[in-house]
């Protein structure tokens, strides 16, 4: 499913002052089954962009379409994964995963079957009847992935989902996410502030400027997967992205960057 964001802007009103411009003129197409990361300095509005796509906030101007059809509010074609603390602590793991299915009025038994399937996908089927407090941070984020996948969305929105995890767990979850993505082939829009993460995961990396967030460049990151974080190609794309973040100034004319070959 193709996600098209057209000329999207967002202002936050401030009483007695001019509004804060969070995002300005964002135009981006995420192709079917494509993995696109949005990267930028903190406060650049990358999370706001994701929240607007998810329907949790409204844009001041601009439009969002899914396969050419405009969406105004939340769409069941999309599911979002949050940074942390998103599991319901009063529900068991499996009941967390069935939450979205309950919202779609799916009966308990088929809902549990679907939930178990996705728990199996993230390797946590043995923990179905445990509670979130019994699980580590990394396991909880796996459950959050399973919960989002269980409603079988065609687009996954991920808001720094591994940002609160330690480096090792983080690397492991990135690898697992790619495996799941290769099996299920969702369109993914992934927000992160980690250059390494973006280069490891994405087909393309959208680099935003500081406030107001505009698209600075879109970096082509189409290396063969699985990627080797220590390979020269990886380092080359990494450096290209880092340079874009560190450079000051306005977006340049040619929007798509192909990192120079060695």
């Amino acid at each position: 499913m193709t996600l098209e964001i057209l000329n999207l802007s967002k202002e936050f009103p401030v009483p007695g002052q001019p509004p804060i411009q969070a995002l300005s003129g964002i135009t981006l197409t995420v192709g079917d089954k494509e993995f696109v990361s949005v990267l930028g300095p903190s406060g650049c509005g990358k999370t706001t962009l994701l929240r607007i796509v998810a329907g949790l906030e409204t844009a001041t101007s601009g439009s969002i379409t899914l396969d050419g059809e405009s969406i105004d509010r939340r769409s069941s074609q999309m599911a979002m994964i949050f940074q942390e603390y998103s599991l319901y602590p009063w529900r068991t793991i499996i009941d967390n995963v069935t939450f979205g299915l309950e919202m779609q009025n799916i009966e308990e038994r088929p809902a549990r079957e679907v939930a178990l399937e996705y728990l199996h996908l993230v390797g946590l089927d043995e923990f179905a009847n445990r509670y979130p407090y019994e699980l580590s941070g990394g396991m909880r984020q796996r459950v959050a992935v399973a919960r989002a996948m269980a409603i079988e969305p065609r687009i996954l929105l991920m808001d720094e989902p591994f940002g609160a995890l330690d480096a090792q767990t983080r690397n492991m979850l990135q690898k697992e996410l790619l495996e799941i993505w290769e099996k299920t082939r969702k369109t993914v829009l992934f927000v992160t502030h980690s250059v390494d993460e973006a280069v490891y995961l994405s087909d393309r990396i959208v680099v935003l400027t500081a406030r107001p967030g505009r698209i600075r460049k879109i970096v082509d990151s189409s290396l063969e997967r699985p990627r080797n974080r220590t390979s020269p190609e990886f380092a080359r794309i990494r450096r290209c992205v880092l340079d874009l973040i560190n450079e000051s100034g306005q977006p340049k004319e040619d929007l798509i960057v192909h990192p120079p070959s060695l």
Partner: peptide, 15 residues
Amino acid sequence: VKKTWIEVAETLGAR
């Protein structure tokens, strides 16, 4: 009640 809990529900289609 954490705002994230409510937003999760909303993104999963809760009324």
